[in-house]
């Protein structure tokens, strides 16, 4: 089975300044991967690139299948007169396209809203939902997208503990169904409790593998030091320096997977 995502010498950034520098690795089918690191570490940038939103500065992403993506800063116009049912039903686009009617899929939409605890909210305008309810509605849309690969960018910021519990249960259910889930998160306790795999990012990959082996004080300290440096006069990267280092340090190299042992 081909892996859902393979990163080859991937460098991402804005205006030639890399935000994610020379990352190599493979996400295996069925992985439940947490993506963590300080602010400015490149988590959102990496997810945007995986979703196809931005193009790599260098290297490439090999992605086998369509992806369902929940961005951190959505561009949703909440004042638009749209019902919760219609918002969730957008997830059916790949099946319905621009013209086919909702028809028999209506039950699936109502079931998805039920699965996120929004039964009875179908006809409500999206502008009347609270922050937590709105996030639940977006998760209903993710359910309806029915993708094997799901990307979540800080899906739990600003919502209450009960909603987080419900949505985590949903993510565990996806994992149980063999779907691949990558989520950018900040809460280390949450990652340790629910995510078997972690990629610690600080503009370059600090460690990638089993969560317990990645989230060590040493790695976290290194991530803090590496992040947030932005040099206006940075020299042009020749790539060789980084290519040489890949697979060298045990914490950076991702050739033989650490958790394979």
């Amino acid at each position: 089975m081909t892996p859902p995502i393979r990163l080859v010498g991937l460098t991402l950034g804005y205006d030639r300044h890399p935000a994610v520098h020379h990352i190599d690795g493979t996400v295996r089918a069925g992985d439940l991967l947490a993506l963590t690191g300080p602010n400015g570490a490149g988590k959102s940038t990496l997810l945007k690139a995986l979703a196809g939103e931005i193009r790599p500065l260098d290297g490439r992403i090999e992605r086998a299948e369509p992806v369902a993506y929940l961005p951190q800063a959505d561009e949703i116009d909440r004042s638009f007169p749209l019902s919760v049912l219609d918002l969730a039903a957008m997830g059916l686009w790949r099946r319905l396209g621009p013209w086919r009617g909702l028809g028999r899929h209506r039950d699936a939409v109502i079931a998805a809203l039920g699965a996120v605890g929004l039964s009875g909210f179908e006809a409500r305008p999206i502008g009347t939902l609270s922050g937590g309810q709105f996030r639940r509605a977006l998760f209903a849309r993710l359910i309806l997208q029915d993708c094997r690969l799901i990307l979540l960018d800080e899906p739990f910021t600003g919502i209450d503990a009960r909603t987080v519990e419900d949505l985590l249960a949903l993510i565990r259910a996806w994992h149980g169904e063999g779907r691949t889930v990558i989520a950018a998160l900040h809460d280390l306790a949450q990652i340790r409790a629910h995510f078997p795999q972690t990629l610690l990012l600080a503009r370059e990959p600090v460690a990638w593998g089993a969560t317990a082996r990645v989230l060590t004080p040493e790695h976290l300290g290194r991530a803090r030091r590496l992040s947030e440096a932005w040099d206006e006069d940075a020299p042009v990267c020749d790539g060789a320096r980084h290519a040489g280092r890949v697979g060298q340090g045990d914490e950076r190299g991702h050739g033989p997977r650490e958790d394979a042992a």
Binding site: A51, G52, E53, P66, V67, Y69, P71, D74, E75, I76, D77, F80, L82, D86, L87, M90, W93, R94, I126, R141, Q145
Partner: peptide, 14 residues
């Protein structure tokens, strides 16, 4: 309608 409500989502699916 999708472009008005959520252009980012529409970009990722279509």
């Amino acid at each position: 309608v999708m472009e008005c409500v959520d252009p980012l989502f529409l970009r990722t699916v279509s």
